[in-house]
Design a protein around this nucleic acid. Structure first.
Lengths: 167, 167
DNA sequence: GACCTTTTCTTGAAAGTTTAACTAGATAGA
DNA sequence: TCTATCTAGTTAAACTTTCAAGAAAAGGTC
Protein backbone atom coordinates (compact mmCIF):
# COMPACT_ATOMS: atom_id res chain seq x y z
CA UNK A 1 0.00 0.00 0.00
CA UNK A 2 1.00 3.61 -0.44
CA UNK A 3 1.22 6.27 2.21
CA UNK A 4 0.07 9.02 -0.11
CA UNK A 5 -2.85 10.00 2.06
CA UNK A 6 -0.72 10.77 5.08
CA UNK A 7 2.73 11.77 3.79
CA UNK A 8 3.63 15.31 2.78
CA UNK A 9 2.36 16.08 -0.72
CA UNK A 10 4.99 16.27 -3.42
CA UNK A 11 3.96 19.69 -4.73
CA UNK A 12 4.72 20.63 -8.29
CA UNK A 13 7.84 22.66 -8.96
CA UNK A 14 7.46 26.06 -10.61
CA UNK A 15 8.47 24.54 -13.92
CA UNK A 16 5.96 21.73 -13.53
CA UNK A 17 3.22 24.16 -12.65
CA UNK A 18 3.97 26.21 -15.75
CA UNK A 19 3.89 23.11 -17.93
CA UNK A 20 0.69 21.86 -16.35
CA UNK A 21 -1.03 25.18 -16.83
CA UNK A 22 0.22 25.48 -20.40
CA UNK A 23 -1.13 22.00 -21.05
CA UNK A 24 -4.56 22.92 -19.69
CA UNK A 25 -4.65 26.20 -21.58
CA UNK A 26 -3.60 24.74 -24.90
CA UNK A 27 -5.89 21.71 -24.75
CA UNK A 28 -8.87 23.82 -23.66
CA UNK A 29 -8.32 26.29 -26.48
CA UNK A 30 -7.73 23.57 -29.05
CA UNK A 31 -10.85 21.66 -28.08
CA UNK A 32 -12.90 24.82 -28.25
CA UNK A 33 -11.35 25.68 -31.59
CA UNK A 34 -12.00 22.34 -33.29
CA UNK A 35 -15.45 21.96 -31.79
CA UNK A 36 -16.42 25.31 -33.26
CA UNK A 37 -14.77 24.66 -36.61
CA UNK A 38 -16.60 21.36 -37.02
CA UNK A 39 -19.88 22.61 -35.60
CA UNK A 40 -19.78 25.34 -38.21
CA UNK A 41 -18.58 23.28 -41.18
CA UNK A 42 -19.99 19.83 -40.44
CA UNK A 43 -22.78 20.45 -37.95
CA UNK A 44 -21.39 18.32 -35.14
CA UNK A 45 -18.88 18.43 -32.31
CA UNK A 46 -15.40 17.11 -32.79
CA UNK A 47 -15.91 13.82 -30.99
CA UNK A 48 -18.85 12.96 -33.25
CA UNK A 49 -16.75 13.71 -36.30
CA UNK A 50 -14.10 11.35 -34.97
CA UNK A 51 -16.67 8.58 -34.76
CA UNK A 52 -17.53 8.99 -38.43
CA UNK A 53 -13.84 8.95 -39.32
CA UNK A 54 -13.38 5.70 -37.40
CA UNK A 55 -16.33 4.12 -39.16
CA UNK A 56 -15.12 5.27 -42.57
CA UNK A 57 -11.85 3.45 -42.02
CA UNK A 58 -13.36 0.26 -40.63
CA UNK A 59 -13.99 -2.81 -42.82
CA UNK A 60 -17.41 -2.49 -44.45
CA UNK A 61 -17.78 0.92 -42.79
CA UNK A 62 -19.17 -0.63 -39.62
CA UNK A 63 -18.05 -1.32 -36.10
CA UNK A 64 -19.37 -2.81 -32.89
CA UNK A 65 -20.49 -0.22 -30.35
CA UNK A 66 -18.03 -1.14 -27.62
CA UNK A 67 -15.16 -1.32 -30.09
CA UNK A 68 -16.03 2.15 -31.33
CA UNK A 69 -16.23 3.45 -27.78
CA UNK A 70 -12.81 1.97 -27.03
CA UNK A 71 -11.28 3.60 -30.10
CA UNK A 72 -12.82 6.95 -29.22
CA UNK A 73 -11.90 6.61 -25.52
CA UNK A 74 -15.44 7.33 -24.37
CA UNK A 75 -18.16 5.53 -22.41
CA UNK A 76 -20.70 3.30 -24.10
CA UNK A 77 -23.45 5.55 -22.77
CA UNK A 78 -21.95 8.59 -24.39
CA UNK A 79 -21.58 6.65 -27.61
CA UNK A 80 -25.20 5.51 -27.49
CA UNK A 81 -26.37 9.10 -27.32
CA UNK A 82 -23.95 10.18 -30.01
CA UNK A 83 -24.99 7.44 -32.42
CA UNK A 84 -28.65 8.23 -31.78
CA UNK A 85 -28.00 11.79 -32.82
CA UNK A 86 -25.97 10.84 -35.88
CA UNK A 87 -28.71 8.40 -36.83
CA UNK A 88 -31.21 11.25 -36.75
CA UNK A 89 -28.95 13.12 -39.16
CA UNK A 90 -28.94 10.09 -41.45
CA UNK A 91 -25.16 9.73 -41.30
CA UNK A 92 -25.10 6.47 -39.36
CA UNK A 93 -27.52 3.60 -38.95
CA UNK A 94 -27.66 0.77 -36.45
CA UNK A 95 -27.62 -2.85 -37.42
CA UNK A 96 -28.03 -5.98 -35.32
CA UNK A 97 -24.92 -8.08 -34.91
CA UNK A 98 -25.39 -11.55 -36.34
CA UNK A 99 -22.96 -13.42 -34.12
CA UNK A 100 -24.04 -11.86 -30.81
CA UNK A 101 -27.66 -10.96 -30.36
CA UNK A 102 -26.82 -8.38 -27.71
CA UNK A 103 -24.57 -6.55 -30.11
CA UNK A 104 -25.09 -3.62 -32.41
CA UNK A 105 -23.06 -2.36 -35.30
CA UNK A 106 -22.87 1.31 -36.13
CA UNK A 107 -22.77 1.66 -39.91
CA UNK A 108 -21.66 4.75 -41.81
CA UNK A 109 -24.28 5.56 -44.46
CA UNK A 110 -23.61 6.92 -47.93
CA UNK A 111 -24.85 10.29 -46.74
CA UNK A 112 -22.44 10.10 -43.84
CA UNK A 113 -19.55 9.32 -46.15
CA UNK A 114 -20.50 12.18 -48.44
CA UNK A 115 -20.63 14.59 -45.53
CA UNK A 116 -17.25 13.36 -44.34
CA UNK A 117 -15.67 13.79 -47.78
CA UNK A 118 -17.03 17.29 -48.01
CA UNK A 119 -15.80 18.44 -44.62
CA UNK A 120 -12.48 16.58 -44.40
CA UNK A 121 -10.35 19.09 -46.35
CA UNK A 122 -11.45 21.98 -44.16
CA UNK A 123 -10.82 20.03 -41.01
CA UNK A 124 -7.38 18.86 -42.07
CA UNK A 125 -6.51 22.43 -42.91
CA UNK A 126 -7.67 23.55 -39.47
CA UNK A 127 -5.57 20.86 -37.80
CA UNK A 128 -2.55 21.93 -39.81
CA UNK A 129 -2.98 25.58 -39.03
CA UNK A 130 -3.50 25.05 -35.33
CA UNK A 131 -0.93 22.35 -34.75
CA UNK A 132 1.45 21.06 -37.40
CA UNK A 133 2.28 24.34 -39.08
CA UNK A 134 3.34 25.72 -35.70
CA UNK A 135 5.67 22.95 -34.61
CA UNK A 136 9.07 21.85 -35.85
CA UNK A 137 9.42 18.25 -37.05
CA UNK A 138 11.32 17.49 -33.83
CA UNK A 139 8.48 18.89 -31.77
CA UNK A 140 5.92 16.86 -33.70
CA UNK A 141 7.90 13.72 -33.10
CA UNK A 142 8.37 14.56 -29.45
CA UNK A 143 4.68 15.36 -29.00
CA UNK A 144 3.75 12.00 -30.46
CA UNK A 145 6.05 10.16 -28.12
CA UNK A 146 4.80 12.08 -25.09
CA UNK A 147 1.13 11.57 -25.93
CA UNK A 148 1.62 7.86 -26.55
CA UNK A 149 3.32 7.57 -23.18
CA UNK A 150 0.54 9.41 -21.37
CA UNK A 151 -2.22 7.45 -23.08
CA UNK A 152 -0.53 4.16 -22.33
CA UNK A 153 -0.19 5.18 -18.71
CA UNK A 154 -3.93 5.48 -18.39
CA UNK A 155 -4.76 2.24 -20.15
CA UNK A 156 -2.21 -0.28 -18.92
CA UNK A 157 -2.60 -3.74 -20.38
CA UNK A 158 -4.06 -6.61 -18.45
CA UNK A 159 -5.18 -4.66 -15.40
CA UNK A 160 -8.48 -3.61 -13.91
CA UNK A 161 -8.08 0.03 -14.89
CA UNK A 162 -11.13 2.28 -14.84
CA UNK A 163 -11.52 2.69 -18.57
CA UNK A 164 -14.47 4.63 -19.97
CA UNK A 165 -15.72 1.98 -22.39
CA UNK A 166 -15.85 -0.65 -19.63
CA UNK A 167 -17.93 1.40 -17.25
CA UNK B 1 -7.18 35.80 -49.61
CA UNK B 2 -6.32 32.12 -49.49
CA UNK B 3 -7.18 29.47 -52.01
CA UNK B 4 -7.68 26.80 -49.38
CA UNK B 5 -11.24 26.13 -50.42
CA UNK B 6 -10.34 25.25 -53.97
CA UNK B 7 -6.77 23.90 -53.92
CA UNK B 8 -5.91 20.28 -53.18
CA UNK B 9 -6.00 19.55 -49.46
CA UNK B 10 -2.64 19.07 -47.81
CA UNK B 11 -3.48 15.73 -46.17
CA UNK B 12 -1.65 14.66 -43.04
CA UNK B 13 1.31 12.33 -43.44
CA UNK B 14 1.19 8.96 -41.69
CA UNK B 15 3.39 10.34 -38.95
CA UNK B 16 1.18 13.38 -38.51
CA UNK B 17 -1.92 11.21 -38.39
CA UNK B 18 -0.37 9.07 -35.68
CA UNK B 19 0.60 12.11 -33.65
CA UNK B 20 -2.82 13.70 -34.07
CA UNK B 21 -4.58 10.55 -32.98
CA UNK B 22 -2.23 10.06 -30.05
CA UNK B 23 -2.94 13.64 -29.02
CA UNK B 24 -6.71 13.09 -29.14
CA UNK B 25 -6.47 9.80 -27.28
CA UNK B 26 -4.24 11.10 -24.52
CA UNK B 27 -6.13 14.33 -23.96
CA UNK B 28 -9.49 12.56 -23.94
CA UNK B 29 -8.26 9.99 -21.42
CA UNK B 30 -6.59 12.59 -19.25
CA UNK B 31 -9.64 14.81 -19.13
CA UNK B 32 -11.81 11.86 -18.23
CA UNK B 33 -9.30 10.80 -15.60
CA UNK B 34 -9.03 14.16 -13.84
CA UNK B 35 -12.72 14.88 -14.08
CA UNK B 36 -13.44 11.62 -12.32
CA UNK B 37 -10.73 12.06 -9.72
CA UNK B 38 -12.00 15.51 -8.78
CA UNK B 39 -15.66 14.60 -9.00
CA UNK B 40 -14.95 11.83 -6.52
CA UNK B 41 -12.62 13.74 -4.18
CA UNK B 42 -13.89 17.31 -4.45
CA UNK B 43 -17.39 17.00 -5.85
CA UNK B 44 -16.81 19.03 -9.00
CA UNK B 45 -15.42 18.72 -12.51
CA UNK B 46 -11.88 19.69 -13.26
CA UNK B 47 -12.65 23.05 -14.83
CA UNK B 48 -14.55 24.16 -11.71
CA UNK B 49 -11.64 23.14 -9.54
CA UNK B 50 -9.37 25.25 -11.73
CA UNK B 51 -11.57 28.27 -11.11
CA UNK B 52 -11.18 27.89 -7.36
CA UNK B 53 -7.42 27.55 -7.75
CA UNK B 54 -7.31 30.77 -9.76
CA UNK B 55 -9.33 32.60 -7.15
CA UNK B 56 -7.16 31.27 -4.33
CA UNK B 57 -4.10 32.76 -5.98
CA UNK B 58 -5.65 36.12 -6.81
CA UNK B 59 -5.20 39.18 -4.58
CA UNK B 60 -7.88 39.20 -1.89
CA UNK B 61 -9.13 35.88 -3.29
CA UNK B 62 -11.34 37.61 -5.84
CA UNK B 63 -11.39 38.24 -9.54
CA UNK B 64 -13.54 39.92 -12.17
CA UNK B 65 -15.68 37.51 -14.13
CA UNK B 66 -14.22 38.24 -17.54
CA UNK B 67 -10.70 38.08 -16.18
CA UNK B 68 -11.43 34.68 -14.66
CA UNK B 69 -12.96 33.49 -17.91
CA UNK B 70 -9.88 34.63 -19.79
CA UNK B 71 -7.57 32.79 -17.42
CA UNK B 72 -9.65 29.63 -17.66
CA UNK B 73 -10.02 29.96 -21.46
CA UNK B 74 -13.79 29.62 -21.35
CA UNK B 75 -16.81 31.70 -22.30
CA UNK B 76 -18.38 34.13 -19.86
CA UNK B 77 -21.64 32.26 -20.17
CA UNK B 78 -20.02 29.04 -19.10
CA UNK B 79 -18.38 30.84 -16.23
CA UNK B 80 -21.67 32.40 -15.13
CA UNK B 81 -23.26 28.97 -14.85
CA UNK B 82 -20.20 27.51 -13.13
CA UNK B 83 -20.03 30.29 -10.54
CA UNK B 84 -23.75 29.91 -9.91
CA UNK B 85 -23.18 26.25 -9.10
CA UNK B 86 -20.14 26.93 -6.91
CA UNK B 87 -22.13 29.63 -5.14
CA UNK B 88 -24.79 27.04 -4.35
CA UNK B 89 -22.07 24.91 -2.78
CA UNK B 90 -20.99 27.87 -0.69
CA UNK B 91 -17.46 27.86 -2.10
CA UNK B 92 -17.73 31.14 -3.98
CA UNK B 93 -19.84 34.25 -3.63
CA UNK B 94 -20.50 37.15 -5.98
CA UNK B 95 -19.76 40.73 -5.16
CA UNK B 96 -20.51 43.93 -7.04
CA UNK B 97 -17.51 45.70 -8.50
CA UNK B 98 -17.13 49.19 -7.09
CA UNK B 99 -15.40 50.81 -10.04
CA UNK B 100 -17.67 49.41 -12.77
CA UNK B 101 -21.31 48.91 -11.97
CA UNK B 102 -21.67 46.30 -14.70
CA UNK B 103 -18.93 44.22 -13.12
CA UNK B 104 -18.98 41.32 -10.74
CA UNK B 105 -16.24 39.80 -8.65
CA UNK B 106 -16.17 36.11 -7.86
CA UNK B 107 -14.85 35.68 -4.33
CA UNK B 108 -13.49 32.46 -2.86
CA UNK B 109 -15.14 31.86 0.52
CA UNK B 110 -13.49 30.37 3.58
CA UNK B 111 -15.40 27.15 2.95
CA UNK B 112 -14.07 27.17 -0.60
CA UNK B 113 -10.52 27.61 0.59
CA UNK B 114 -10.92 24.81 3.12
CA UNK B 115 -12.25 22.49 0.48
CA UNK B 116 -9.36 23.40 -1.80
CA UNK B 117 -6.76 22.74 0.90
CA UNK B 118 -8.29 19.39 1.64
CA UNK B 119 -8.40 18.20 -1.96
CA UNK B 120 -5.19 19.74 -3.31
CA UNK B 121 -2.77 17.02 -2.17
CA UNK B 122 -4.80 14.27 -3.80
CA UNK B 123 -5.09 16.19 -7.02
CA UNK B 124 -1.41 17.02 -7.20
CA UNK B 125 -0.65 13.38 -6.65
CA UNK B 126 -3.00 12.43 -9.47
CA UNK B 127 -1.34 14.92 -11.80
CA UNK B 128 2.08 13.54 -10.90
CA UNK B 129 1.05 9.96 -11.44
CA UNK B 130 -0.64 10.60 -14.75
CA UNK B 131 1.83 13.06 -16.21
CA UNK B 132 5.08 14.06 -14.54
CA UNK B 133 6.10 10.67 -13.21
CA UNK B 134 5.84 9.26 -16.71
CA UNK B 135 7.91 11.82 -18.58
CA UNK B 136 11.64 12.56 -18.56
CA UNK B 137 12.71 16.10 -17.62
CA UNK B 138 13.47 16.72 -21.28
CA UNK B 139 9.98 15.65 -22.25
CA UNK B 140 8.43 17.87 -19.59
CA UNK B 141 10.38 20.82 -20.89
CA UNK B 142 9.51 20.00 -24.48
CA UNK B 143 5.83 19.56 -23.63
CA UNK B 144 5.78 22.97 -22.00
CA UNK B 145 7.32 24.61 -25.02
CA UNK B 146 4.93 22.88 -27.40
CA UNK B 147 1.84 23.74 -25.38
CA UNK B 148 2.86 27.36 -25.03
CA UNK B 149 3.34 27.55 -28.78
CA UNK B 150 -0.05 26.01 -29.53
CA UNK B 151 -1.87 28.20 -27.01
CA UNK B 152 -0.22 31.34 -28.35
CA UNK B 153 -1.21 30.34 -31.86
CA UNK B 154 -4.86 30.40 -30.87
CA UNK B 155 -4.73 33.69 -29.01
CA UNK B 156 -2.55 35.99 -31.09
CA UNK B 157 -2.10 39.45 -29.66
CA UNK B 158 -3.83 42.48 -31.05
CA UNK B 159 -6.11 40.72 -33.47
CA UNK B 160 -9.80 39.99 -33.74
CA UNK B 161 -9.42 36.33 -32.86
CA UNK B 162 -12.51 34.37 -31.84
CA UNK B 163 -11.62 33.95 -28.18
CA UNK B 164 -14.09 32.27 -25.84
CA UNK B 165 -14.16 34.98 -23.18
CA UNK B 166 -14.99 37.67 -25.77
CA UNK B 167 -17.93 35.86 -27.28
C1' DG C 1 -27.16 66.19 -23.32
C1' DA C 2 -28.68 62.77 -26.97
C1' DC C 3 -27.47 58.97 -29.66
C1' DC C 4 -24.98 55.02 -30.98
C1' DT C 5 -21.81 51.44 -30.09
C1' DT C 6 -19.32 48.49 -27.10
C1' DT C 7 -18.56 45.97 -22.91
C1' DT C 8 -20.06 43.13 -18.93
C1' DC C 9 -22.63 39.72 -17.35
C1' DT C 10 -26.86 36.89 -17.06
C1' DT C 11 -30.58 33.94 -18.63
C1' DG C 12 -33.45 30.18 -20.78
C1' DA C 13 -33.56 26.66 -23.98
C1' DA C 14 -31.31 23.21 -26.59
C1' DA C 15 -27.60 20.03 -26.95
C1' DG C 16 -24.31 16.98 -24.90
C1' DT C 17 -22.45 14.18 -20.94
C1' DT C 18 -22.52 11.48 -16.67
C1' DT C 19 -24.35 8.38 -13.42
C1' DA C 20 -26.94 4.66 -11.98
C1' DA C 21 -30.25 1.46 -13.04
C1' DC C 22 -31.99 -1.78 -16.19
C1' DT C 23 -32.94 -5.41 -20.13
C1' DA C 24 -31.39 -9.06 -22.74
C1' DG C 25 -28.22 -12.32 -24.11
C1' DA C 26 -23.79 -14.88 -23.29
C1' DT C 27 -20.89 -17.62 -20.29
C1' DA C 28 -19.36 -20.65 -16.69
C1' DG C 29 -19.97 -23.78 -12.84
C1' DA C 30 -22.55 -27.12 -10.05
C1' DT D 1 -30.04 -28.20 -16.89
C1' DC D 2 -30.23 -24.55 -13.71
C1' DT D 3 -28.36 -20.79 -11.75
C1' DA D 4 -25.27 -17.20 -10.93
C1' DT D 5 -22.46 -14.02 -13.04
C1' DC D 6 -20.77 -11.26 -16.66
C1' DT D 7 -21.11 -8.55 -21.00
C1' DA D 8 -23.48 -5.37 -24.56
C1' DG D 9 -26.06 -1.80 -24.98
C1' DT D 10 -29.80 1.47 -23.69
C1' DT D 11 -32.33 4.76 -20.89
C1' DA D 12 -33.96 8.39 -17.49
C1' DA D 13 -32.56 11.98 -14.68
C1' DA D 14 -29.26 15.20 -13.14
C1' DC D 15 -25.76 18.03 -14.51
C1' DT D 16 -22.82 20.86 -17.76
C1' DT D 17 -22.05 23.47 -21.91
C1' DT D 18 -23.43 26.08 -25.92
C1' DC D 19 -26.16 29.27 -28.38
C1' DA D 20 -28.90 33.20 -28.94
C1' DA D 21 -30.96 36.90 -26.84
C1' DG D 22 -31.14 40.57 -23.74
C1' DA D 23 -30.49 44.05 -19.66
C1' DA D 24 -27.59 47.43 -17.84
C1' DA D 25 -23.70 50.37 -17.62
C1' DA D 26 -19.71 52.53 -20.01
C1' DG D 27 -17.59 55.03 -23.74
C1' DG D 28 -17.45 57.82 -27.85
C1' DT D 29 -19.35 61.35 -31.11
C1' DC D 30 -22.02 65.03 -32.47
Amino acid sequence: MTTASTSAPRWLTDEEQRVWRAYLHATTLLEDHFDRQLQRDAGMPHIYYGLLVQLSQAPRRRMRMTELARNAKITRSRLSHAIARLEKNGWVRREDCSSDKRGQNAVLTDDGLTMLRRSAPGHVEAVRQAMFDRLTPEQVSSLGEIMRTLATGLEPEGTDADLPWLR
